[in-house]
């Protein structure tokens, strides 16, 4: 389950998130950004490094994830 969310219409497509993503899980084009769920490990490095707070880590979804795991 993806815990990283992209706030709509906020991204500047600068590529910092792609530059720090260890899993190559972000697809960035001229004016579009997408997280590839199968590759993302929810490490949140992209969230920490985004200069303008576009990416958010959905802590609230962790419980859901745990429930799913059980």
């Amino acid at each position: 389950m993806l815990l990283i969310e992209i706030k709509p219409n906020k991204c500047d497509f600068c590529g910092v998130c792609v530059g720090v993503c260890p899993e190559d899980a972000i697809e960035l084009k001229e004016a579009s950004i997408e997280i590839i769920e199968e590759r993302c490990t929810n490490c949140a490095k992209c969230v920490w490094c985004c200069p303008i707070e576009v990416l958010i880590f959905r802590k609230d979804k962790i419980q859901q994830l745990k429930a799913k795991a059980i």
Partner: peptide, 12 residues
């Protein structure tokens, strides 16, 4: 090629 976060200067 990914950069360590402490080495990534995040700019605006």
């Amino acid at each position: 090629t990914h950069t360590k976060i402490s080495d990534m200067e995040c700019c605006v």
